[in-house]
């Protein structure tokens, strides 16, 4: 008997969400099969990779990484432009590390100015990330959402504690996209989406950040959570879980000891910058095959490696 290829069909699909505006807008999501299972059906938009930049000179970043941006670190808008011109990411993640009340505690007004300059300097979609301090982020996101009205940025992110303010300002008032963030908690991920819907935020304006972890640091738990979310979205056609997923990788991988330990402390481990890139790439690739539709990395080499990986995995000849 001739071999008959069986395709796994699902009743649901991940929604497509567009970030940014104009020619450089990017769409994420749209798949109706498991990640990169192009032999089963439509894999949707290829995963998009963004580069992270921050609003202050990042003292805690690896020297070799800072060297790449020598001369532009002092000016966030210049930095953004340099990153776009030289490394061609799919989007820029502007993280307001400087707004952290435990750090430089920059004012919301200062941050808004920075956001406006960056938005003017680059035409790629922006992802606006905060400080992880829920009160500060609430104020920061509301003000930045207003200042960037029309840019269709992704606000990263709304959490259980501040989703009402962030959702109302970000999506309802100023028509941006919102990432609903939970910490590797499948039931809360679903619940937060439902709460967002009840607030009036449309599913079309929602992305999920279901948490992140570096490989070796609870990654299996993250991966199984993503699996279960995607299987519920596709297999159970659960519309409350059909949002594309964005996963910030850099904020996890650069602080673990494999990346952060100095060459003096761990002479046997080899070049510290190579190790850090490897951790970032290994995590990003693992997150991608777990189902992330957008990923944020820090090193341009990680970006380039991931872009090659995606085009090889999803390019022609694999079906």
């Amino acid at each position: 008997m001739a071999y008959k290829k069986a395709a796994k069909k699902y009743s649901g699909e991940i929604r497509e969400v567009t970030l940014g505006s104009g020619d450089k807008a990017v769409a994420i999501g749209g798949k109706n099969v498991l990640p990169i299972h192009s032999f089963d059906g439509n894999v949707g938009n290829p995963p998009k990779i963004g580069l992270e930049i921050v609003d202050i000179v990042p003292e805690d970043w690896h020297d070799d990484l800072k060297k790449i941006y020598d001369g532009v670190l002092e000016d966030t808008a210049e930095w953004a432009k340099f990153a776009v011109d030289n490394f061609a990411p799919d989007f820029i993640c502007l993280r307001f590390a400087g707004a952290d009340p435990d750090g430089k505690n920059k004012s919301v007004e200062e941050c808004v100015e920075t956001a406006k300059k960056v938005a003017a300097a680059v035409d790629l979609p922006l992802v606006i990330a905060g400080t992880k301090n829920v009160e500060k982020d609430e104020k920061l996101f509301s003000a930045v959402a207003e200042a960037l009205a029309g840019e269709n940025v992704l606000i990263l992110s709304a959490r259980e504690e501040n989703y009402k303010t962030v959702g109302a300002a970000g999506a309802l008032a100023y028509k941006h996209k919102i990432a609903a963030e939970t910490s590797v908690d499948i039931n809360l991920a679903k619940q937060l989406n439902i709460l967002m819907n009840q607030l009036g935020v449309q599913n079309e304006d929602l992305v999920m950040n279901v948490g992140s972890a570096a490989v070796g640091y609870g990654f299996e738990y993250l991966s199984s959570t993503m699996d279960r979310i995607i299987l519920a979205a596709l297999g159970q056609n659960d519309s409350t879980l059909q949002m594309p997923i964005i996963t910030p990788v850099s904020t996890e991988t650069w602080t673990v000891k494999e990346s952060a330990a100095s060459e003096d402390d761990e002479p046997a481990w080899g070049s510290s910058i190579e190790r850090a890139i490897q951790m970032e790439v290994a995590t990003a690739a693992a997150v991608l095959v777990s189902g992330a539709d957008a990923i944020i990395v820090r090193h341009p080499k990680s970006l380039a490696t991931m872009k090659t990986f995606i085009s090889n995995m999803l390019g022609s000849g694999l079906n």
């Binding site: 499948i186 039931n187 679903k190 619940q191 009840q198 159970q236 659960d238």
Partner: peptide, 12 residues
């Protein structure tokens, strides 16, 4: 196991 739990499951 046909739907995923969330606190608001009865409202869906």
């Amino acid at each position: 196991g046909k739907t995923l739990y969330a606190d608001s499951f009865l409202e869906l």
